[in-house]
Structures are given as C-alpha cells and as structure tokens.
Simulated scan of single mutants.
Amino acid sequence: MDYPVFWIDRFHPHSVKQHTAFVAKSRAEVDAFYTAALRAGGTDHGAPGLRPTSAGYPSGYYAAFVLDPDGNNMEAVYRERQAQR
C-alpha cells in the first residue's frame, strides 16, 4: 500500500470542521459505512460511488461521505486494485 490507512489533518485549526477518511476493504464496506452513519444521525454528503477522475480523484476511487452531527466530513474509501498499481 502506497498511502496511509488513516489520515489526520494537523494543519486545520481546532475550530474548523475536519475531514476524516477511513480505508475500506471493499465497496460493500463503503456502502455499509454510509448506511450506518446515516442511521446514527449523519447527513448525506456524497452517496457511495466511483468518484470522477475529472474532479481530481484517482481511477477506481469508490467512496461515500457523511457529515457527522458536528458538521465534520467523514469518508469511507475503497481504492480498487487496478488503481493501486
């Protein structure tokens, strides 16, 4: 793996909303994260799906985004094998 499994952005001030990303082992895990987060009170911020390379995402970037009750952006991402080579 050529990238961290868990990212923490230390450059934002504490009062600024954060973006936390978790690596999933499959698309199904991304989907399950999204469903569970919405049931737990999160707000949709990007349904599960492949993200476009035209928006700067690498090929095979499958992710879902949910805002937690404090407004932080929570992400689950699965990078397909062909994209990791």
Rank of each mutant, 00 (worst) to 15 (best):
M1V: 14
M1S: 15
D2P: 03
Y3K: 11
P4I: 02
P4T: 04
V5E: 09
W7P: 06
W7S: 14
W7M: 12
F11R: 15
H12L: 13
P13G: 13
V16Y: 15
K17I: 02
K17D: 09
A21I: 14
F22N: 12
F22Y: 06
A24Y: 07
K25H: 09
R27C: 07
A28E: 14
A28F: 05
E29Y: 00
V30P: 02
V30N: 03
V30D: 05
A32N: 08
A32Y: 03
A32I: 07
F33K: 06
F33C: 13
F33D: 09
Y34F: 14
A37Y: 10
G42E: 05
G42V: 04
H45S: 14
G46E: 02
G46V: 02
G46C: 05
P48L: 04
P48A: 06
L50Y: 06
A55K: 14
G56C: 07
G56M: 05
Y57V: 02
Y57H: 09
P58A: 07
P58E: 01
Y61D: 05
Y62M: 01
A63L: 02
V66L: 04
L67D: 11
D68P: 02
D70Y: 09
D70M: 11
N72M: 08
M74I: 15
M74C: 09
A76R: 00
A76G: 06
A76L: 00
Y78G: 10
Y78C: 03
R79Q: 11
R81F: 03
R81A: 13
Q82C: 01
Q82L: 09
A83C: 04
A83F: 00
Q84G: 02
R85W: 01
